[in-house]
Design a protein around this nucleic acid. Structure first.
Lengths: 339, 339
DNA sequence: CACGTGTGCTCAATCGATGAAGCAAGAATT
DNA sequence: AATTCTTGCTTCATCGATTGAGCACACGTG
């Protein structure tokens, strides 16, 4: 027993032989519906004990192959490099497991081709449902899954043909912009337009945030400076480059900024430090997304934190309700208190 | 075709019928060894085209059930709330996919019971290999897998009975402590013992780091203050509490500290800000782990960044070499330049 | 005592893919 | 012309779990 690499794992047939009964009785006992199948408590106990002793583990591949539902639930996620997606994944796993589902997650690195490839892989593994988080092209993912009869739910970024759960990007951006404008006025006594940096000009969230950004300016009676709306992408390097180019074109840099994610903020902060252009007076910042260390960077930064627990509850509510229409659930984000 | 929820997915049997051939020919063509099975290029092409048209997707459950190796590779990971584990997971997925393996990952939240449960689930899904990252009890995970004939590799924290890939914790801590001691001397002109905070007194990494911490003190001729070695756990709250308790016992707080992870640093920084006890002069900090925003917190923080790409390459080297002995591969971490 | 009812199980088909074994027809060799 | 070889397939058992159908026996009932 010690040195033998027991190539064969224990199966229900092995247990059946040991118990002097049939495989179907073993199966019924081990998957819990032995009462429905009229197996005696005596036999059930015997089999359970044997399974324990033999270290029996169900072969999910065989089980899933036979059943109609796999109870596997997939998620694709863009990155693991920030707290937002990190907590989405962690919550997702927890909630899935609580419901007896097995979660599988793939990181698609904001690459549309990888998104489709990952979706295809998940279909091969017979997922019952796929959550497309922050997908670049949610509708193509949805189409792929629909062809296989698998439901999709969009998270973070909405799609046109499946239910979506997203943050209230407009509302969050409106409030965040208001605060940064107020901070600018308080600190510098002037009402000047802010910079918007990060995100993609094509994605729904960025568009909505820009809309909130604009409306907050209008509300405050400040005219937008169109050259200050830089939807350059999310990556730190892209934000850093955008700042650099802007700085080359003007000597009068904005006194406040709206940064469209912590990951973009990383680039922005790097540029600020390296360039020294804000050495005299720090810019007032607003960041759409939360990070504990960003909160410690100073009292000149406001943050909006997306409500991940509520968002994921909404996702599982949709799964349980069985809804498939293109509804959009908007979850209000939390505006963090400074300090 | 439009409105019908095509319950049945296309199988090789459907394709066989459409192509007027046998399922085994279809199988051979689609899994690429049709040459070995002497299928004509003509038929191969026909089948491939048909599969494309029909949107055929392999049923992995069936395929894995039949094959000896599943090509599924599992990983358990403690948390997604920091850059270190985030990049481990992202790299792991990439390297696994490059090798034609399907990665499945589970977050076990530093909970030994969850670790075992997750390992059991992965065994049910027939993983060929399991990577136990930062496992609280790697040897029990290993035992469980060994009973099923599945190899394990430990990552980040070593185990006694399977190969392990870890950082050179001693070396990293030695260098980090040296730097913080030097910074303290430069800033405050005094050689005083540092505080060590975070981590578990029972885990290998923490023990090794404390050893490096001690040796760096000895080297500098500074006596360790044993009341300043606080291996209180990793969670931010635990670090915060440890600081609080320490502060209640002394009026003379250490001028420098070694913080044993970014996540512990979060609690330490929170306490520093809230208590105001360091308002007059900031403590010199060293953090064993890297975070971009921590780097921006000021020039009084040194960081050690674990070399995730090298660590994962080492993991896959071990997988490919087939080694199973209890070797420990130590990867030197990178000491980040301040500024 | 014939008949229904309930209990406790077993049998065998099935899920979809895989691959060893084998078969038929044509090509090459003796 | 008889034989081997080669090519290009097909047949069928198999992986392990699930489940509808069915069998044998005990018990109760009119």
């Amino acid at each position: 027993m010690n040195r033998t690499t027991q190539t064969k794992r224990t199966t229900i047939y092995d247990l059946a032989e040991l118990a002097g009964t049939s495989a179907s009785a073993v199966s019924a006992v081990l998957n819990g519906n032995w009462k429905k199948r009229r197996i005696s408590a005596r036999l059930a106990e015997k089999i359970t004990k044997l399974a324990e002793e033999q270290g029996y583990a169900l072969n999910m591949q065989a089980s899933v192959l036979r059943r109609d539902r796999s109870k596997i639930i997939g998620m694709i996620v863009p990155k693991y490099d920030n707290r937002y997606f990190g907590s989405i994944v962690e919550q997702f796993e927890t909630l899935a497991r609580e419901r007896g589902l097995f979660p599988i997650i793939t990181c698609t690195r904001r690459d549309p081709a990888l998104e489709l490839e990952a979706a295809r892989a998940m279909l091969s593994y017979q997922v019952d449902c796929l959550i497309a988080t922050g997908a670049t092209d949610p509708d193509r993912v949805m189409a792929l899954c629909a062809a296989a009869g698998v439901r999709t739910i969009n998270l973070d970024l909405p799609g046109a043909r499946a239910p979506s759960v997203i943050s209230d990007n407009y509302g969050g951006a409106l409030e965040l912009t208001r605060r940064v404008l107020a901070n600018c006025e308080k600190e510098y006594g002037q009402k000047t337009p802010l910079l918007f940096v990060g995100g993609r000009g094509t994605d729904h969230n960025t568009l909505e945030r820009v809309r909130g950004f604009r409306d907050a300016h209008a509300e405050a009676g400040v005219a937008i400076d169109e050259t200050l709306v830089l939807t350059c992408g999310y990556a730190p390097e892209k934000a850093e480059n955008a700042m650099k180019q802007l700085a080359e074109q003007t000597s009068d840099l904005p006194r406040g900024m709206f940064v469209n994610s912590t990951i973009s903020l990383e680039g922005v902060m790097r540029w600020i430090r390296r360039s020294g252009r804000y050495a005299d007076r720090v810019p007032q910042l607003g960041c759409f997304d939360w990070d504990p260390f960003v909160a410690m960077l100073g009292d000149h930064i406001e943050m909006v934190r997306q409500d991940v627990p509520k968002m994921l509850e909404a996702v599982f509510d949709i799964i349980e309700s069985g809804a498939t229409g293109p509804t959009v659930v908007q979850i209000p984000p939390i505006v963090e208190n400074t300090g």
